[in-house]
Write a protein that binds this DNA or RNA. Structure first.
Length: 438
RNA sequence: CGGGGCGUAGCGCAGCCUGGUAGCGCACCUGUUUUGGGAACAGGGGGUCGCAAGUUCGAAUCUUGCCGCCCCGACCA
């Protein structure tokens, strides 16, 4: 993409409403614009990142055997009345009526709807287990939306639902999602730690939150240091799943609300880690909580009827955009992990209009695209300093600086955004180096 | 929802106390000189001062009501 063709409204100054790094940088880098409290317009650069994260989440769900579908944002109150949640959910649920005064709501989650859908088709244990998911916008009328996309009222969530014949099978489904989450966060360049969690209004007796460590996190967390550095498990056979899950859950990890100081004290002192965390995922096994009131059951092999055992599994996709920035930035701007960067590499033309500089940039730009990369070419007629500052702000993993000074030597400057390391390379070396990074 | 704060140009702010018809920096447009880490000079465009009532000869400024937004706390992806 040529910058002169793109829509990238960057701000030099930080809007007063933003108080944390991710919110400030998302506004300044032209990723989002607030429309009203907790509701944001996703501008082109922000949407690119959102989509990349969404796709990684999707790929890992698919890899774990989950099947994608799509449920609507607007739901009928009927299913919620059936489970009793229409009253239980409270003012966080946005309730609306249609022209016929029928009660509708903007979905804050989808257990009720999917249970209704599932029960109407599935009648036999032979059709289980199943895991269905969708990635859809949610609305929760938060008391206090804040921190940009970290706690919006409208947000994009991946929510998966598992259906099993009994608890033993449901725990397997739970473990499979647990492992998928570890793999997902690793691909996003994040260190996420699973922590035993309260089940809250969704209900159930087995639940974990996944938190990434960041100073600005809303939760205080206590955990065994080894959890932070564990590599993601990758593909795990059915037989090994429980061991992988146990390897995490056997180490101490809790948010402040579940924290047990006495248990934490048993962790070796040099392994005790207390920090701030951002919740980026939450998984639940809740058994028959919805299948019971909604009579979602199957016939078992012995001809009896059994309520389906269910679980639900959420990832805050839009929150992750902010979460990744919180975990990866410096004073100059965002530092995107390669997997989610809006563009792979930036080309800075230090002298737009200069025939030689233009030609060199154009050639490299074409070559990078031909190599399958997604470069952003700053072809604007701005001064160098401005281009450097803007490129640092939007945080592409690599910057290639091309200007008269380097061209005299036949060299480009290649900068690693994360380390700040600069190297002087020939055009051929530049192409080889950059393509080797992806 | 309790407590606090704020609404003046796209962004950051001053002006309000003590009423006289709106200003600064950045951004934007034109020109000139510039160009390797957010250039300089000159000229220029852009505002029903959140909305509505009221007080007054006169309201950004005083009064009342409403709306919106942010921050701190209790809850959530």
């Amino acid at each position: 993409m040529r910058l002169t063709d793109y829509f990238l409204p960057v701000l030099k100054e930080t809007p007063a409403e933003a108080t944390i790094a991710s919110h400030q940088f998302m506004l300044r880098a032209g990723m989002i614009k607030q429309d009203s409290a907790g509701i944001y317009i996703w501008l082109p650069l922000g949407l690119k990142v959102l989509r990349k994260i969404e796709n990684i989440v999707r790929e890992e769900q698919n890899r774990a055997g989950a099947i994608e579908m799509l449920m609507p944002t607007i739901q009928s109150a009927g299913h919620w009345k059936e489970t009793g949640r229409y009253d239980a959910y409270g003012p966080e649920m946005l309730r609306i009526t249609d022209r016929g005064d029928r009660e509708l709501l903007y979905g804050p989650t989808n257990e009720d709807m999917i249970t209704d859908m599932f029960r109407s088709y599935v009648k036999s244990y032979k059709d289980l287990p199943k895991c269905l998911y969708h990635i859809q916008w949610k609305f929760r009328d938060e008391r206090r939306p804040r921190f940009g996309v970290m706690r919006g009222r409208e947000f994009l969530m991946k929510d998966a639902y598992t259906f099993d014949v009994d608890k033993e099978a449901a725990v397997k489904s739970y473990n499979r999602q647990f492992i998928a989450y570890l793999n997902t966060y690793e691909r996003l360049g994040l260190k996420a730690v699973p922590m035993r969690a309260d089940t809250g209004p969704i209900g159930g007796d087995l639940s974990h939150e996944f938190l990434i460590l960041a100073d600005t996190g809303e939760s205080e967390v206590f955990c065994h240091k080894d959890l932070v550095d564990m590599a993601a498990p990758g593909d795990v056979s059915d037989g090994d799943m429980q061991a992988v899950v146990d390897s995490r859950t056997s180490l101490y990890a809790a948010t402040d609300e579940m924290h047990d100081a006495d248990e934490f004290a048993k962790v070796p002192a040099d392994k005790q880690l207390s920090a701030r965390g951002i919740e980026v995922g939450h998984i639940f096994y809740f058994g028959e909580k919805y299948s019971e009131p909604m009579k979602a059951s199957v016939q078992t092999a012995d001809g009896k009827s059994a309520n389906i055992h269910m679980g639900s599994y959420g990832v805050g996709v839009s929150r992750l955009v902010g979460g990744i920035i919180e975990a990866s930035h410096d004073e100059n701007g965002i530092i995107w992990p390669k997997a989610v960067a809006p563009f792979d590499v930036g080309i800075i033309n230090l002298k737009s209009g200069d025939a030689e500089a233009d030609a060199a940039c154009e050639t490299l730009y074409s070559q990078l695209k031909a190599a399958g990369l997604d470069p952003l070419y700053d072809d604007r007629d701005d001064r160098g300093g401005q281009k450097f500052a803007r490129m640092d702000l939007i945080g592409l993993p690599y910057q290639i600086v091309i200007g008269p000074r380097g061209l005299k030597e036949g060299k480009y400057e290649v900068k690693d955004r994360k380390t700040g390391e600069k190297q002087s390379l020939t055009p051929e070396e530049t192409l080889t180096f950059i393509t080797a990074q992806f």
